[in-house]
Design a protein around this nucleic acid. Structure first.
Length: 656
RNA sequence: GCCGAUGUAGCUCAAUGGUCGAGCAACGGUUUUGUAAACCGUCGGUUGCGGGUUCGAGUCCCGCCAUCGGCUCCA
């Protein structure tokens, strides 16, 4: 007798010694049995036909695209179908690894000839045939020795390696294979599963791209070809997915950056080096002004430091040897008078300079915390393949600050820093965020400093985010070499995740630079440092904001906040007068005095995503008004200039 | 850095190895306009750069540069 507990708490009993989730589904109803593609058995995703021999909690997984388990089965199975298709078209292929992703699936494989985009169509045709044949995914298991012998005989080192790794994790367990059809007769693959019941359950799919990928993600290993695909239960969902991708493309900051005149990159200056155009510079100035206001409120001191520094500084900090490959080469020079050699580095970070400001005079515990802030421009030689628009560049400005405090001030300082990061997110409309608590990788030797201090730092960070109720998760191996950190990840309005600000706790650099303060006991003590940057980099942050707002910045950030559109030449003078009034009140206003018709002017202003369009003609001139139309296509009708200005100023002032 | 793709006017795109075109933008003119594109005209190119094959190269081959999609990296 097997008792099955259903998600609603109901229980069903079966007399057979072995049943499957499919039996459970049939017992509930024929419709559910028809839709079932797998099951959660005691919370674990399994094949629909996996045997159940003891009492269990069972949730039937049905073919729904809003269920991550269902999509997992679908996409994992589609990866298999793709691998089978590729194997039949390219018999010399060696398959490596083919998992589902949050947004599709891929299969890594080794092939002498590259698979090209031109090949996608015939692979898809072959896949369609496999799906139309509606063959069952059939699982079978072999004891470890037999499985390894079989795989070694097949001569595929990747699969042998996969099986060995599985055995290392769970020694002695059987190794599972999935045949698409009948074992021994049809195509099969070493695989942990689970899968759909049959290939026919794959509704709609598409191969999307191919790229290189290293075996086990290790750049020193063999590079494989990674073929990406996407699958849904219905063709309509696939089409909708395509439309979402198209929409994302339209808000790409590189495209909008050009259309809206925000920034450009010139190969004559160098790749990865941003040229801020006047309109982009305006956005940046507003962002900086916003932060400066916060810094002043929170007791920071603004400082300025140079763009280069003696390389010894970075040798002392430990950055230089650690990041040698991703820095611009040093500038070597001989002092004219003394003949002394000096070597300078374009600064890759601001901390050593700020440390020297701290160290410039003796500090008392009464002075702490000292909070030094700077929009500091730094240069890092990122690999060419990494550069992307404003989000990955070689020269960027951090909204940086370094806090020097006593050990017992650390927690309060961390709290206020995290609070500032959250305030920034709230103001800019990032409502969905996650804090990643980035910790050491166990057993790695890349970290500086004593284990005891690391433990203390990690505990403090954990405690702060927990007590502040910040949604967070921990990530091993993501810490900086000098300390653990809090990295803030936000989701933009279309659900893409970005890494923004960071708060880092550092006991190492104060040690390396021998920083001190005199305590109440009249003895020297070592301060603790906190590195923090709520935006991260102004370049990257602006790029993300462009995409987040699709170029339609809130009014306070908009490069042009209102544009006056004259109906005809007769009203240009009045328009100019209105622009003058707006500008006198600090509003960024412009006049479109061209001789196009009003429709054309509106279209142009809409494309530029200007928040307020102010039409002026005879009626408006007479009434001392403007006809207000918003970027969202609301028509607010004729409003007296003074009344409009008051509303607009309030909107800007409150950063609404 | 690695794998693959792409590179034609300011932008978006055409051009079986045979004179590189169009729309938009810009500029000039006409028009004086009422809520997402008025009309006519003009200008604009060493086809990313450098080699090669060919009677002839935007097109084929090689090298470099840049960009895009990934991988790796990210203080």
């Amino acid at each position: 007798m097997i008792t099955i507990t259903l998600p609603n708490g109901a229980k069903k009993q079966f007399t057979a010694p072995t049943i499957t989730a499919f039996d459970v589904a049939k017992a509930i109803g024929p419709r559910l049995a028809q839709d079932a593609i797998g099951a959660l058995i005691n919370g674990e995703l399994r094949d629909l036909h996996a045997p159940i021999q003891a009492d269990a909690a069972v949730t039937i997984v049905t073919a729904r695209s809003d269920d991550t388990h269902a999509l997992y089965l679908l996409r994992h199975s589609c990866a298999h179908v793709m691998a089978e298709a590729i194997t039949s078209l390219f018999p010399s292929v060696k398959l490596a690894y083919g998992p589902p992703l949050e947004d599709g699936f891929y299969y890594d494989l080794e092939l002498a000839e590259p698979i090209r985009q031109e090949d996608f169509a015939r692979v898809e045709t072959e896949m369609a045939r496999i799906i139309a044949a509606d063959r069952p995914f059939t699982r079978y298991e072999l004891p470890p020795d037999e499985a390894l012998r079989k795989l070694e005989h097949q001569g595929n080192p990747y699969k042998v390696d996969n099986a060995r790794r599985a055995l290392r994790q769970n020694p002695g367990t059987a190794i599972s294979f999935y045949a698409t059809g009948q074992p021994g007769k049809d195509w099969e693959d070493l695989c942990r599963g689970p899968h759909l019941p049959t290939t026919g359950r794959i509704g709609a799919f598409k191969i999307t791209s191919v790229a290189g990928a290293y075996w086990h993600g290790d750049a020193s290993q063999q590079q494989l070809q990674r073929v990406y695909g996407i699958a849904f239960f219905s063709a309509a969902e696939l089409t909708a997915h395509g439309q979402r991708l198209q929409a994302a493309k339209e808000r790409d900051h590189r495209l909008l950056g050009r259309q809206l005149g925000l920034f450009t990159i010139s190969p004559l200056v160098g790749s990865g080096l941003i040229l801020w155009l006047p309109k982009g510079a305006m956005v940046r100035q507003e962002l900086e002004a916003f932060l400066l206001q916060e810094l002043t409120r929170r007791g920071y001191s603004a400082v300025y430091t140079p763009h280069i520094g003696n390389v010894n500084l970075y040798k002392t900090s430990g950055h230089y040897p650690y990041y040698k490959d991703s820095q611009f080469p040093t500038i070597k020079m001989k002092e004219r008078d003394s003949g002394d050699e000096a070597e300078y580095l374009l600064k890759p970070m601001n901390c050593p300079h700020h440390i020297q400001i701290y160290a410039a005079e003796p500090r008392s515990y009464r002075d702490l915390p000292i909070r030094l802030a700077e929009f500091g421009t730094v240069y890092r030689f990122e690999q060419s393949g990494e550069l992307a628009g404003m989000t990955r560049v070689r020269g960027f400005t951090q909204d940086d600050a370094h806090l020097f405090c006593t050990p017992d001030q650390v927690e309060a300082e961390l709290r206020s820093t995290v609070d500032m990061v959250l305030h920034v997110f709230r103001t800019l409309g990032f409502t969905e965020y996650q804090c990643r608590v980035s910790l050491r990788a166990p057993g790695s030797d890349k970290y500086a400093g004593e284990a005891a201090l690391w433990n203390q730092a990690e505990t403090t960070l954990r405690q702060v985010v927990r007590e502040m109720g910040v949604p967070h998760h921990e990530a091993l191996g993501e810490a900086a070499f000098y300390g653990p950190k809090l990295d803030f990840l936000v989701k933009d309005v279309i659900g893409r995740q970005w890494q923004l600000g960071t708060v880092q706790l550092d006991y190492v650099l104060p040690e390396r630079f021998q920083l001190e303060y005199i305590g109440a006991d009249n003895a020297p003590h070592r301060p603790v440092m906190i590195h923090r940057a709520p935006f991260g980099s102004l370049e990257r942050f602006t790029g993300i904001l462009i995409e987040h707002f699709a170029g339609a910045f809130p009014t306070w950030l908009s490069p042009v906040q209102a544009i006056v559109l004259s109906i005809s030449e007769k009203f240009v003078d009045y328009g100019r007068q209105v622009v003058g009034q707006l500008r006198a009140a600090g509003v960024r206003a412009e006049l479109d005095s061209g001789d196009e018709k009003i429709g054309a002017k509106i279209r142009r202003a809409r494309i530029q995503k200007i928040p307020y369009l102010l039409v002026v003609g005879a009626k408006e001139q007479q009434a001392g008004a403007v006809a207000v139309r918003t970027r969202q296509d609301e028509d607010l009708g004729a409003v007296p200039v003074a009344a409009f200005l008051e509303k607009l100023s309030a909107e800007i002032r409150t950063r609404a």
